[in-house]
Design a binder for these strands. Structure first.
Lengths: 286, 286
DNA sequence: ATCACTTACGGGTGACGTAAAAATC
DNA sequence: GATTTTTACGTCACCCGTAAGTGAT
């Protein structure tokens, strides 16, 4: 059989057209490459090159061999990637979210239950999240839709209420105790994260006259928020997790509207029930 | 990149299930195979096996890797065959015949014109011969049909008349000078080669009452013919080439019927016109 | 005790690099 | 003279086999 390094040498020569150039590019000496080409011809029992005294080029057979070799090398690289990806998929729990809130607490729970597993988090819209669960991209998803399908297990996880975050000087802080409604602050300009999932659809619909300044990066968002007097958003969950209410420069007021509350569910494929048994029992045992 | 011998080792282990058995089958020592498996894991950066102290089995990742490796090795073998076949096709002129006669003289002409080329001969029915020319299996074909297509070059090669071969004692030898007709010997039993192409169709149709004893091998045919008094066939071409008329134990009498004469043509793809230039000029220069 | 695998060790193949020669531009 | 390829030669990597060790059957 032909060892891989010979195929690599052939492909390199085909790409760089001279032995010297090819040798340099694959970091071997030029005579070594010359010998490899001879060895390849020897193994195949076939002439692959037209040789003159100081010129060597692939003949028709050689060109064919080179393109076949390239295919094989590509496939070998693909194999490496597939094996590594498969292995890593065995050692990571991949979670898809349609809202960001739970993303801040679920990984630490999972990590406690499965200390040897890596955790990958991803946020996309509802549709992509569900599709990702079905095609095994995600091991579990957090969705605001309670999908009830025969092949799924759906467990109510919790709910999140949207808050407005204001500077203490803002006139709307008078609502502090009773909460306020979207229409009370419709027209306000908000700073918000670009990645808030379905929340974005909700606030845009309920406050059509507002402007929303999106920030891609969470750190820069919080920096901008702290240095400006613009309104922003939070939820009961994020306020608790980040102890945001200890920050004296911001007042948090809940929205009273029913659309300001999102219930969400942890959904997994039934086929993964055993694999995620600890997690399921943790959820049900709360 | 992964050297081929490691893939072979993995595939062997997957097939034979224990290191010892696999090692024996690929003719290396068992520790060598053990090391190869470790090396493969090292290169991939991934665990491929479940190991207990004296047992080693492929895990899920390992099984996947093994099947991918198998695919790659198959492709490599395929590459070797394709390259060798392509190379040999460059060094052989492949000829397809629908009748056997020219098969006895064309190769020697070709050999004189192209002394470095190998020659392969093949006989099949008209349809397969033409198909073989179109799909490049044959470089040239000899056909009794004068295919006139835009992509083909067809050159009349010659014609062949069928003779009957009789022992001198046979009553029909009285026809010797004027020739005879198929119907004159319909009912006769003939010894004939199993590979006579379209001739077989002709004699079966024109002498429906005859029996034809087919011989696969030409040598055994001529042996049987010489030791029996049964009739047999020849053509002007074969009589000349094999000096059959110098054999006193056989009389050759031509068939007069028009179906007893077959004209045949040398046909090549136009795209091969240059490659076979010498041959074409030889044909036209006769 | 036997089997299966791993680790340790010494040996040989062969792939490598350096050097030199030959040929072309 | 610079570039490109091949041949020659010595070196070193690495793959191999043998031997020894460990644990399971």
């Amino acid at each position: 059989m032909i060892e891989t390094y010979l195929l690599e040498a052939l492909v390199a020569f085909n790409r760089y057209k001279t032995l010297s150039a090819a040798a340099e590019n694959i970091h071997i000496s030029q005579p070594a490459l010359s010998r490899s080409m001879q060895k390849l011809e020897d193994i195949l029992g076939v002439s692959l090159f037209d040789r003159s005294k100081n010129k060597i080029t692939l003949n028709e057979t050689g060109k064919m061999a080179a393109s076949l070799a390239e295919r094989i090398l590509q496939e070998e690289e693909e194999m490496i990637h597939m094996v590594r990806n498969f292995d890593s998929s065995l050692h990571t729990i991949s979670i898809g979210y349609s809202i960001p809130g739970p993303m801040y607490e679920i990984p630490s729970f999972i990590n406690r239950l499965y200390p040897d597993m890596a955790i990958s988090s991803d946020m996309q819209d509802e549709e992509m999240i569900l599709k990702g669960l079905r095609n095994r991209r995600y091991n579990l998803i957090i969705s605001t839709i309670n999908h009830e399908d025969d092949d799924l297990i759906s467990i109510p996880y919790g709910s999140e209420r949207l808050y407005i975050s204001l500077v203490p000087a803002h006139p709307a802080v008078t609502y502090k105790d009773q909460g306020l409604s979207f229409k009370d602050v419709n027209g306000e300009t908000f700073l918000m994260s670009a990645r808030v999932g379905v929340w974005e659809d909700i606030v845009r619909e309920k406050m059509p006259d507002s402007r929303f300044l999106l920030q891609n990066d969470l750190d820069s968002l919080s920096e901008v928020v702290n240095s400006s007097s613009l309104a922003s958003f939070a939820t009961d969950l994020t306020i608790r997790l980040f102890r945001a209410d200890e920050n004296p420069s911001r007042i948090f007021i809940p929205f009273n509207d029913k659309e300001a509350v999102l219930s969400y569910y942890c959904i997994i494929l039934k086929e993964n029930e055993k694999k995620l048994d600890r997690w399921i029992r943790f959820l049900n045992g709360r």
